[in-house]
Amino acid sequence: MIEHRPFITFLAHFTLIIGIAIVAFPIWVTFVAATHDAVRMTQVPLPMLPGDQFFINLKKALFEGIGGAGGIPVGMMMLNSLVVALMIATGKIIISLLSAFAIVYFKFPFRMAFFWMIFLTLMLPVEVRILPTFEVVADLGMLNSFWGLSIPLIASATATFMFRQVFLTVPDEMLEAARVDGAGPMRFFFDILLPLSRTNIAALFVILFIYGWNQYLWPLLITTDASMFTVVMGIKQMLEAAEQAPEWHLIMMTALLAMLPPVVVVLTMQRMFVKGLTETDK
């Protein structure tokens, strides 16, 4: 469109660049802090340009850990985070696929009751049932375990709704054709529905991986054993320790490491990420 508004175009770029600067500045500060040694990080004003200690700090954080977080190496916490994030993402996708399949493709008693029960989970975030859920997990002996960290979080109304929506758009003729070809329900599920939902599954996986990786309150409640800490929790432990002996260079290195996997996922799978976000939430 022909439009002579150089000022507005300039303003648009200018505003966006300012916006990006505000968004990115904390990361820059974090990165810079992770490249200096402990001594430099106690001198005011703090540096604004990177130093040369990046790899030394990286090695120290990854393999030795920091006092205050139980001396657990960050590398191990990241491994824990990875396991938890993968378990949550995969678990949510599997059970949501199965229940959406049942609700859309089967006529059976209590179908709608089940549907509303799943819907209800939307209204019960961890935060409103902290104590009793903790008690349940404790009674089941799932404290300080990967199962305890993941299973209570894998019920998902949003994922179930999304798959339900996807299945509803699959033409009826698919099932009719599959039946004519002699496919039973599970065959139909694996051979037709799963392949058709592939991109939705991928998009959802991106979102759920981030969700799982970033879990905080729940791991905080049910892990007391430092070897089960996730990296997101580890940060908090370090911050507490920083009250006495601030090791900002290592804390910020850990912060970088903690945000790296989800940020990389968002940036490299941007299309999937945007799809996942807009389709599950709308």
């Binding site: 990006i20 970033n214 997101v232 945000m259 989800p262 968002v266």
Partner: peptide, 12 residues
């Protein structure tokens, strides 16, 4: 450049 803070955990 604008969307990645979504991926940063609240604690971080």
């Amino acid at each position: 450049l604008l969307i990645w803070p979504y991926a940063v955990a609240p604690v971080v």
